[in-house]
Amino acid sequence: MAHVTILVVDDEPLIRLDIAYMLEDLGYQTIEASNADEAMQLLAELPHIAAIVTDVDMPGTMDGRQLAMTVSNRWAPCKLIVMSGHRMLTAPDLPSGAVFISKPVPARQLASALAGFGV
């Protein structure tokens, strides 16, 4: 499972860090972005990102839901996990194949979602 890279996107540094630690404990490599615009830049530079874990409500030109939509259109192989503490998103709000996790995010749920993706 070495060298599988996951991009964590959240504008709250502590929570982003926490998710990154969880993923590292699961054996993944992580990179971080604090908003959708930064995330898009990283995606363009690093084509080997296997999955994205993103928050919904963030500052910048796109929110996390729009980021997920864009990624699913442009980088179809990249798996998507969308998380929010404020709202529940359902299938129509998300690109197909994306998984929604309610915050605070339990490590177990993160692990099983990624396992389900096969990454």
């Binding site: 709250e12 502590l14 929570i15 860090l17 926490d18 630690y21 503490g85 404020h86 915050k103 605070p104």
Partner: peptide
């Protein structure tokens, strides 16, 4: 409610780290 939830998430993150 939102603020409260945010606070708890931060505390949880600090504890974990």
């Amino acid at each position: 409610g939102h603020r409260m939830k945010n606070q708890l998430a931060m505390v949880q993150a600090i504890v974990n780290q």
